[in-house]
Design a protein around this nucleic acid. Sequence first.
RNA 1: GCCGGAGUGGCGGAAUUGGCAGACGCGCCGGAUUCAAAAUCCGGUGGCCGCAAGGCUGUGUGGGUUCGAGUCCCACCUCCGGUACCA
Length: 943
Amino acid sequence: MPRYNPSELEPRWQAYWEENATFRTPDEPGEKKRYILDMFPYPSGDGLHVGHPEGYTATDIVARFARARGESVLHPMGFDAFGLPAEEHAIKTGEHPRVQTQRNIDNFTRQLKMLGFSYDWDRVVSTTDEDYFRWTQWIFLVLYDTWFDEDAQAGRPIAELPIPAEVEAEGSDAVCKYQDKHRLAYQDDALVNWCPALGTVLANEEVQDGRSDRGDHPVKRIPLRQWMLRITSYAERLLDGLDDLDWPAGIKKLQRDWIGRSTGAEVDFYVGEDASRQQWLDSRQDGGFPAATDSSFLRVYTTRPDTLYGATYMVVSPEHEMLGELTTSEQADAVQAYCEKASFKSDRERTDGDRAKTGVFTGSHAINPVNGQPVPIWVADYVLAGYGTGAIMAVPAHDDRDFEFAKQFDLSVVPVVNPPDDHPQRDEILSGNACFASEGNAINSGEFDGQETQAVKTAVTAMLNEAGLAAVAVNYKLRDWLFSRQRFWGEPFPILHEIDEQGELTGMKRAVPDSELPVRLPELEDFKPHGRPEPPLAKADDDWLYVTLDGKRYRRETNTMPQWAGSCWYYLRYIDPQNQQAMIDPTREQTWMPVDLYVGGAEHAVLHLLYSRFWHKVLYDRGHLSCPEPFAKLVNQGMILGEVEFTGYQSSTGEPVSSSQVKRDAEGERVGPDGVPVTMIKLAEEEVSKQGDGFVLKDDPNVRIDSRAFKMSKSRGNVVNPDEVVREYGADSLRLYEMFMGPLEATKPWAMTGVGGVRNFLDRVWRMIVEPKADELVLAAAMSDEPCDADQKRMLHATIKKVTEDTEALSFNTAIARMMEFTNFFTRADQRPREAMQQFLVLLNPYAPHIAEELWQVLGGNGSISHQPWPQWDADALVEASIEVPVQINGKVKAKIQVASEISKEDLEQAALQDPKVESLIADRTIVKRIVVPGRLVNLVVK
RNA sequence: GCCGGAGUGGCGGAAUUGGCAGACGCGCCGGAUUCAAAAUCCGGUGGCCGCAAGGCUGUGUGGGUUCGAGUCCCACCUCCGGUACCA
């Protein structure tokens, strides 16, 4: 029996494609190019997950479709192969991360090939290849060699940085240090998670509630010299660039919010001696608002300068540099104790949830510049050191956080914005017992009373600016990018630190010359932590660690780059993966960039995409790239959940508990109505039945059952393995099912019966062309060389149209539905024109390429079906002689009439009125309105 | 709390953007084929009322706009995802 046997035919066609290099990227792209990109995977030891092939199938369909339409396609794949799991494995087993990584890459490659994706396998890159990370290091050096010119809003070579005369005068070391302060890649002290018990520095994701994930040991935050990338300089450009991108609106918003631009004012509050205040004010009047700060005043950033009259106290962050000077001797102990406590808290703890506000009075006061009133200065950890100036003016009447703090410590509340007359809490607000954070008319604000918030903002800022006490300011939530990791399995930094004769660091550093790249990872005896808060590379032999260059001795940088580094620019290397002379050939870059379609998970919505855009813009500024944005169109595929599960609950005594009575207690534990924890039990579909909105236990309909699909996870045991699906149903069925489940962007649950459904469809396609009853592989008896009749032609051309349009719109599920209709139609026909079958296979090919190739050959086609041009539909063939039009009476369909498709409005109305059913329904009533939409419907409004 | 997204048959989902709700698939029911089964093929399948013809009702809830609303507007509910004091 010549049955459809994917396990035989799929590997055969995969071998054919490989041998014939069917999907090689053309060297000289034709008129239209299309760069179709997947977010490359981290090759984990678990292998491919069914979530991966969702996006990969979508892009593969688009790639095959575009090729058939004569476009030149670049469709590559690679591996984001640096990362923590391989390193942890190495620490445990002593096996070099490279070994395990290669094994995983091999397995991923096998699985990807098994699914028949049309990648150009000659262009595979892995971020761990020396040939690749050589250029990652090179790009780092571009960042290191660049400063950001605010006026030009562009990155420029560090050599072009204007050096102030006073720096110049101090000599070349001072100039170097000045330059270092302006580079896009610079060093700064930042806090790391140091775990003394494990003797290692941990990544944020390895720390849970201040304790290590592994072993549950305490983790301390200690400052360590770190590499930072000055992404904040590009904040404005990164914001602006979003406008022209064809990205989901949600992702753009996420990026905008992450960058978090706000405008307001910086305002200086005098903190010096009362006696010198007038002198200070005079100097400001003459000199204007200074760029640099000194200890005579406290500078704050606010987005609500209109509420300055309501600023009743100030707060500085525990890390604020002026805190020491502001603290009076009486308060010194309390302040010191408070700051110490704060320093032990992680960022997370400090900003976690709605915990009560804490803080300590410093003992000093500042003078509110608008009214000359003294206001107390507090220190509190609800003010973040890294945002704005690290200090705030607190307006408890109009800021929820300040209000909460003021209530806690009994500070005064002065309302300065009048809430609307109908505001439910108006009286409380005006008496200082509630907070009103919206806009309105000013009150208690001197000359500004009665004006609207926006006007007051501008006026107050202008007034203070006139006096040299404030200036308009812009702030971003975006922080500079902490770029170094204390890890082994990452790219080494191509940086050398100068050491003197005693082996001490001099503080001077230099880039490794281009010709010396790549800086390879050292060979280590083992990968176990060495117990110091220093990166593992510090364990390397002196051969690696120390370098002599131009007569000077250097110690290599021992931090490594984060995993993001390699993924920031891989899309460029695919274009020219073998280039030994450059990161990318400029002509090729111009030919293929930007990426026309980028598909991947929404979890990378912010970081990966923002980091990539940042690097891209720097490389663009420095003349290495021709387009300002890397990814023209972005699509996020939705998550695939496990099979739907029915979950019931049981009390401790084994009694079933209705899910409507199960609540979560304070710890998040599920408890029954008595507050005692319940146990979850998995139920089979047969044990439940539908009732109302939900499901209930069949045996006891009073017990409600939860029904939902969960994220796939090993611990839950609901992970679907693509290897098994391919073994059972074939790769074409897996591909087709992933696309048929629903819209690409939607989150959707897996259902193995659905895979059976699409497999059924492919079996039907097979039998539509191959004779199922014959012993040999022969064409179906119904196959005919006659042309299509009118109905067949209409079905064929309507299918071509629908599949073409839906594929273009990435609406794969409906395209597949249409191909199913086509197949149902033609399997019923006893004459199946060969030509229709052939055209159909070309449509099916992007979706299920193996069976399409096989049947194409069975039908006598030459070579690969992938070389066949995409069919065109004939609009004339779609026209039907007569169509059915519904007739509504008062908006409800009461009859259907058969009319000529080209019928005029008047004739359609006549036809509707003459329909016997309609006649009888309107017989004794009057028609008050007639709506006639030719080709669509007739609606008669009667009384 | 805030920000996104989504609520349509037993289930996954369609619906040319305001014009016949439920395409297609799964599941289920009936029939054909078979000694029997699998496979296959044909038909049915939102709910309620009715022997039937047919009628009523129906896209999370309540209101509104319209000749006409799953689709637009207002208010609310539920679920999923993200986020967390950014002044």
